[in-house]
Each structure stands twice: as structure tokens, then as C-alpha cells.
Amino acid sequence: MMTLSHFSARLGALAAASALSATLVFVAPQAHAASNGSYYKIELAQPTAAKPELLRSVFVTCEGTNCRAPMASTAPKNMCVSIARKFGAVAAFTAGERVFTADEVAACNADNAKAIAKN
């Protein structure tokens, strides 16, 4: 038989769990969004004076040879190629924890060169 004190304890535990869940629902995405501003880190071969540009649904911001962008819903290689098209040759590219190899960066620049040749 459940007494009033058992019921109160269970109700209190449920309320605490609900409050914790609600907090995580609102705080976790905010923390992710704060760190999301520099998911992509790019070093260009040449400095650029370009203004922030919308590429693949995110804004890419550059200062000199350093560019940054939040995570986009595209493959990192596609983002690399898009950046090479818009800002020039890429010297280094990082997507989150993944650092592109020299061959992968060369492929980004080569894909960009192919696209330019088609136009």
C-alpha cells in the first residue's frame, strides 16, 4: 500500500527529473551553438578582403588568410570546395576534429579548378 509520504517522494523525484530534462533541452543546444561558430577552420593560400559570405546555408567569415564558419549540413569536402570557389585556394581545412590531409586539400582546390574551367 502506498502512503502519502511515498506518493510525495515519487512526485518530488518526477518533478526533479522533469526540471533537469527541461534544463538540458534548453541549455545543451545553446552550448553547442556557442561553440558552433568555428566548426570549419580554413587557411587560405592568399589573404582575402571578402565580406562574410553565405555558403551552403552558413556564413563564412574571413580575416586575411583565416576563415571560420559554423557547421553546415553538407559534407566537409563540399564545404571545402565551395570555400575554394568563393575565396581562392585553400591551404588548410579543418571540419570539427577532422583535419584534412594535404591530398584532401589539393582535391578541394582541384575540384574548384575543374568548376572554373567548365564556366
Rank of each mutant, 00 (worst) to 15 (best):
T3S: 14
T3V: 03
L4V: 06
F7A: 12
S8D: 11
R10K: 11
R10Y: 14
L11S: 08
G12Q: 09
A13Q: 13
S21H: 12
S21R: 06
A22Q: 10
T23E: 07
L24D: 12
A31E: 12
A31M: 12
A33M: 13
A34T: 13
Y39A: 02
K41C: 06
I42W: 05
Q46A: 12
P47S: 02
A50D: 05
A50K: 10
K51D: 09
P52F: 05
L54Y: 08
L54V: 07
L54Q: 15
L55M: 10
R56F: 02
V58T: 04
F59T: 00
V60E: 08
V60D: 01
C62F: 04
C62M: 05
G64A: 13
A75I: 06
A75C: 02
A75N: 02
K77N: 06
K77D: 12
M79S: 07
C80V: 00
I83R: 00
R85D: 15
G88E: 04
A89Q: 15
A89G: 10
A91S: 12
A91Y: 01
A91Q: 14
A92I: 04
F93K: 09
A95Q: 01
A95R: 04
E97C: 01
V99M: 11
T101D: 05
T101I: 03
D103R: 13
D103I: 07
A106Y: 06
N109R: 08
N109Y: 09
D111E: 15
N112H: 02
A113Y: 01
A113M: 05
I116F: 14
A117H: 03
K118H: 04
